[in-house]
Design a protein around this nucleic acid. Structure first.
Lengths: 159, 159
DNA sequence: TATTGTTATACTCTATAACTATA
DNA sequence: TATAGTTATAGAGTATAACAATA
């Protein structure tokens, strides 16, 4: 269908060419695609996109230190500091200086934070259940497995 | 080592919990992971990350219209207008109003743009060849196939 | 009326470096 | 000296809405 195009006047289908083999671009477009649904699904909770994963990760790892969380989520420390402060101001997390290292900052959900996280969970799950794009559930499972391996998510990581 | 954790004082490995099944988060982290290498590999060409895919896409689709390109790359029209203008100012692309629709704007690489694209190609290819993360080349190929299907990249798309 | 591109604005995220207080 | 977190700043991406020209 696209083979009748004038070589120099584009009208119909877009050719990705070698870029269709670019893992980086495919990941970027896939992330945008996924994000679009994510955002509309979670919009009503009035939490910023980046904050949701932080809340959920703190729920899974109570007492996690800011820097550890930042590196797990590939967020810069400087940015994490701002977001953590904001979540504290919003009353969703508590930040506590541990006695053994007074430079550090441990993060935990407050009761209100737990509530908000619980409120968001159904919408998150609905988003995940819907977020298959053109994939079958089995293909989506394979995709997740490959992404985890790509990220070496189970192995310990350096900064 | 991590099994002696107090339920509430995190120190060792980070638990992703249900988030390890979140396609959205996995895509986001993977994209950041990939981008990190991409950025350092292409840094010396002094072209912004977003501009590289635009140049490469115009090379593949000479005469493509701004809006079509924007939707293919999932960039908002307003943003594309700025980037296209910038690339034009840099002398890398030419923007031409087609006679059949004088609202539109067709994009083509200039000679200088072709040169820059050609200069970047080896670094792009080196990045792609390196960008397997923890995957085997076969797994990376499967990952690309799944992402293309997730994106329905071959099928025509709505806005 | 609808569409293409443009401009303007505000917000989010990112990168960097300098700073403090602790270790 | 090195590390954890903070602050400040600049840059890049994104979302939205209002607008002009054209269809």
């Amino acid at each position: 269908m696209a083979d009748m195009l004038d070589r120099d006047t584009h009208d119909g289908a877009v050719r990705f060419g070698p870029l269709a083999e670019s893992l980086g671009l495919l990941l970027r477009l896939s992330q945008l695609h996924s994000f679009h649904d994510f955002y509309t699904a979670l919009e009503r909770h009035h939490v910023r996109p980046g904050e949701i994963s932080i809340l959920m990760m703190i729920r899974e790892n109570p007492g996690i230190r800011q820097g550890v969380l930042a590196s797990a989520l590939m967020i810069k420390r400087a940015h994490m500091a701002k977001m953590a402060r904001r979540l504290e101001d919003a009353g969703l997390i508590e930040r506590r200086v541990p006695p053994d290292d007074r430079r550090a900052m441990e993060l935990r959900l407050t009761a209100q934070g737990e509530l908000r996280a619980a409120e968001m969970t159904p919408d998150l799950e609905a988003h995940e259940a819907r977020n298959f794009g053109g994939l079958t559930p089995e293909e989506a499972a394979t995709l997740r497995t490959l992404l985890r391996k790509y990220l070496a998510l189970d192995a310990p990581k350096e900064d």
